[in-house]
Nucleic acid binder design. Structure first.
Lengths: 205, 205
DNA sequence: ATCATAACGGGACTCCAGTTGCGTTAACGG
DNA sequence: CCGTTAACGCAACTGGAGTCCCGTTATGAT
């Protein structure tokens, strides 16, 4: 199975192909929000995107394939990062941002559907993990600055702090079903800050 | 659409019906573990359970319907609760137990699949939320005892403590994909204990 | 401007998940 | 033990998701 990369075997990501991808990903997102993973069929996505269904089946093949491509797209658009000058306030801002995202009328159901898809497909799972890795890296500087300011101990694992902050919100969204109110976000920030100050997230070295 | 509950309209949960339910739920669990939600069709479940597929379609109708019934079953079998005499140790024991469950070869994939199913079906979601409510209530006494011993402040919300303890483990299982190692469970316990001691989970009253 | 071909689109076709109709089994009340 | 009927099982049916074939469009290189 050796691929011939010589000759005029070019790829064509421009013009029409890009437009088709954009339209299909948008339609797929709409379908996921409305029906969730499981209620999406590619034929309908194709119709709503104004695209031949053969195209969708050929390029993406399955719903998980489509979702994986969506996640690659989502990982590129970056979020604004807070910089208040205080560790606790930075964490509170991030917790509030995550809460707003997960309670958003569109984003909430979309994240649910995407995560559900990832539970059953290795490729989608890999794309999802890449997405969270980039998001976590974007916010890590908040923790690193807090270390520099002496608010939390040297050696604190920034990524682990962000994960612990996010976790309670995702837990409610996906598992317990308890309301995602502002108090929960505040508690998540306060709990993470308290634990970080005590050195719970210091990496053994 | 008024149902006639009078007359000899009896329900028959005994004998054969119970055996069929047991066989079908087990087969459904196996299918969920192997293929995940999305890769399960009721016809195959019926075959593996040694049961007519009409029966499965009539009693449960859809995969989410089946999963909701599984969750009702799961909510009944209770877990052993630790009682070490120390708040930190109790939390560590619970964190370790959750970690073992989620990394178990069968339970891990099963929980993933069940949660994925719940994201797309209100009935399954309700059953899932009931499941977690009962589990959280089972472990709440650990926190209440800690309050009695004066290890954490009066007014600490036991359910919220348990949720915060569980969350990091579920977050890794479902979202970030980072390894669910023993250290993570320990950090979850330590972080929750630290936050609880500082009164983060004290309910405003 | 021209050409080779990557990528798209329409429509017929297939296959099987889910439905329906009806006969059979066995649970439960008497 | 017997009768009623809830619940099950078999087999035929159907609708639409996913596949295939082949013609069309338009991209990118020259």
């Amino acid at each position: 199975m050796i691929e011939d990369t010589s000759g005029p075997g070019t790829v064509r990501p421009g013009g029409r192909t890009a437009r088709v991808r954009e339209a299909v990903l948008r339609a797929a997102g709409d379908a996921l929000v409305e029906r969730g993973f499981g209620g999406v069929d590619l034929a309908e996505v194709a119709r709503r995107a104004g695209v031949g269904k053969t195209t969708v089946y050929r390029r993406w093949g399955t719903v998980p394939g489509l979702v994986a491509d969506m996640l690659a797209e989502m990982a590129e658009s970056s979020q604004p990062r807070a910089d208040t000058g205080s560790f606790a306030a930075d964490l509170a801002a991030l917790a509030a941002l995550i809460r707003e995202t997960l309670t958003d009328e569109r984003q909430g159901p979309l994240f649910k559907a995407v995560i559900a898809t990832a539970t059953g497909d290795a490729g989608t799972a890999a794309a999802l993990h890449r997405f969270y890795r980039t998001r976590i890296e974007e916010w890590s500087p908040c923790v690193d600055r807090a270390v520099d300011r002496g608010e939390v101990p040297e050696g604190t694992d920034a990524a682990e702090v962000i994960r612990f902050l996010s976790a309670p919100l995702y837990y409610r969204l996906l598992a317990s079903g308890d309301p995602l109110d502002a108090g929960t976000a505040q508690r998540a920030a306060a709990a993470t800050a308290a634990a970080a100050r005590e050195g719970v997230f210091v990496t053994a070295r």
